[in-house]
């Protein structure tokens, strides 16, 4: 039988959970309410919990006021390209550290892991200066290149590949498969769950990235969604309904992420210890 901490402890637990759950969800739901309000409702002092008329036209007005389709495209290109790059390089490097023996392995691994400690601020100014002289400000390569791979992903993949049986590799080698072929045909197919976690997290984090796109772009048509939305809000600061509509567009990948990952989300984060 279940022990009780105090009479009604179970109810108390649910009260806490529901209260904190509401504090978490209500602001996000209010974003939807706000996005569909009329300008008058946004300006009025009344607590509008549901708009009198749902103003779907706010989305049209948003796209007329600023090039949100372009912001969306830029974010998609940046997050997508970085995700593809991570999916190519993180498992490859992780495999080398998990399964190969070579002189310099220890020092190379420590060097990669040490980059975990480096705040982005320390890389930011030199990379900015170099990219400025290359003419890479306001370019896709400028947005993408600083994040092509990272130690989190490499470490995650190494941890996943390490317990895979060596016999798989040996057998393929006996069959005369080349080293890269072994990686591609034998190792990678075993990594699907880890690759799914890596890909989803990389995409969402890069989609949300704020600091670098703020610095690496100056022309409106090269802004990513988080930056474009923040600057849009500074310009149209009274039209919170339009800002909220833009925020909903920015929220789409996060929402999709939760739909896709429902089952393994919490375990996935605990497993990877992602920032």
């Amino acid at each position: 039988m279940r022990e009780r901490l105090f009479p009604g402890d179970r109810i108390a637990a649910y009260v806490v959970l529901v209260a904190l759950g509401l504090v978490t969800v209500l602001p996000l739901l209010y974003m939807i309410v706000l996005a569909l309000q009329s300008d008058a409702e946004v300006q009025s002092g009344d607590p509008v919990l549901w708009p009198a008329d749902l103003q779907w036209g706010n989305f049209t007005r948003l796209f007329e006021a600023a090039p949100f389709e372009r912001f969306f495209l830029n974010s998609f290109v940046m997050a997508g390209a970085i995700t593809v790059s991570h999916l190519i390089f993180d498992p490859l490097v992780g495999y080398v550290f998990a399964k190969m023996d070579f002189p310099g392995k220890r020092i190379a691994f420590v060097a990669v892991l040490s980059t975990l400690m480096v705040p982005f601020f320390v890389r930011m100014l030199p990379i900015y200066s170099i990219f400025a002289s290359l003419g890479w400000i306001d370019s896709y390569q400028g947005l993408i290149v600083p994040f092509l791979m990272d130690a989190y992903g490499i470490f995650l993949m190494r941890q996943f590949i390490k317990p895979l049986p060596d016999e798989l590799i040996e057998a393929a080698r006996v069959d005369g498969a080349g080293e890269f072929r072994i990686y591609l045909r034998v190792i990678l197919p075993q990594c699907k769950p880890a690759l799914a976690v890596l890909g989803l997290f990389t995409f969402v984090f890069q989609w949300n990235e704020f600091l670098w796109p703020l610095i690496a772009t100056s022309r409106t048509e090269m802004r990513t969604l988080p930056i474009g939305l923040t600057l849009f809000n500074q310009e149209y600061f009274t039209q919170w309904n339009l800002t909220a509509a833009g925020a909903l567009i920015l929220f789409v990948p996060t929402a999709l992420f939760f739909v896709i990952t429902q089952k393994f989300l919490v375990e996935g984060i605990a497993l990877s210890g992602l920032k």
Binding site: F210, I227, T254
Partner: peptide, 14 residues
Amino acid sequence: RSVLLIPYLTSVSI
């Protein structure tokens, strides 16, 4: 658990 995690994966702009 999932609901409480939503803000963590939401853009800082939002």
